[in-house]
Computed example of a mutant assay.
Amino acid sequence: MSTLERFRDDAYTGERRCWPCTVVNVGIVGLVVAAAIVLDYPVVAGVVGVVGLGAIWARGYVVPYTPRFAPQLVAALPIGSDPFHADGGAQVPDEDGTLADEEMDGETVLTRLVEAGVVVPEGEDLVLADDFYDRWHARMDAHREASAEELAGRIRDLVPGASVSVEDGARGPYVVVSQSGTASLSDAWLTRPVAIAEVAAVEALDGTGLDEGTRLAAAEPLRTFLDVCPDCGGAVEVTTTVECCGGSAGATDPDEVLACTECDTRLFTFPN
């Protein structure tokens, strides 16, 4: 792997580039360059311009923690609707998508996971059993380089009878699981990281004695146990949607979510 490839961050470049982050960073670099020119430091201005713009091109931003404040900053500007994401792809639902095509009582799912030894008590908390943790993470690692089309193909194998397609959204491809054959907002729209996590979870649950319906229903709640991003491998934390890149800036009652600290991808939305 070349130095450039190690420096690049695919989470914020290419089709996944966050334009509020890009615009804010270009503006900051421009201000620093202008200040250096005014102070008669042309060499400094040149270096800052080249390095700053190069970093923005390769990584998406140069100012630390930009994804946490740039979308909120842009949303606060008096420019009407979001100019960056309005036409970036198909309209997608606000709710998290999941492989389960029917509601199963959460307590029932949890009870079955405990009985199968997938989830075990640890003091007052519940944690994943070590062997399941290892199997799940091994499957996520195996799918990390998979394309959205490859993940869609695997989902077709796991959800018999469902129609699965790939649709472009404002922030990347979605794997859409539909019972009708035509993607609609009522269908399950899975982001790539969520698709990786749920496909890997269902695969890792094979051999535990759980039936197919329970394995599919368990894929969503198991995402609450994620400690690394299924896509980029970054650490995750509980935060709110206003802190996520492109989240609900200015929301009066933001959702509490599990999100990656590196790529700011939302991995689970906790019920209000």
Rank of each mutant, 00 (worst) to 15 (best):
10 D>K: 14
14 G>D: 07
21 C>W: 01
23 V>G: 01
23 V>Y: 00
26 V>N: 00
31 L>C: 09
31 L>E: 08
34 A>Q: 03
42 P>V: 02
43 V>K: 00
44 V>H: 02
51 V>H: 02
54 G>E: 04
55 A>H: 10
56 I>G: 02
59 R>E: 04
59 R>A: 06
76 A>D: 11
77 L>M: 13
77 L>T: 11
78 P>L: 03
82 D>T: 06
84 F>D: 01
88 G>D: 12
88 G>T: 09
88 G>Y: 09
90 A>P: 02
92 V>R: 14
101 D>W: 14
103 E>C: 11
109 V>E: 10
112 R>Y: 06
116 A>W: 06
124 E>T: 14
127 V>S: 12
129 A>D: 15
130 D>Y: 11
132 F>Y: 14
137 H>L: 13
137 H>K: 12
139 R>K: 13
148 A>E: 10
149 E>G: 03
152 A>Y: 05
157 D>H: 11
165 S>C: 05
169 G>S: 07
170 A>Q: 11
171 R>H: 13
176 V>I: 07
180 S>H: 09
180 S>E: 13
183 A>Y: 01
187 D>N: 08
187 D>M: 04
194 V>E: 14
204 A>K: 04
207 G>H: 09
209 G>E: 08
212 E>C: 06
217 A>F: 04
221 P>I: 01
225 F>L: 03
226 L>W: 03
235 A>T: 12
235 A>Y: 04
239 T>D: 09
242 V>A: 09
251 A>F: 00
252 T>N: 12
252 T>I: 12
252 T>P: 05
256 E>A: 12
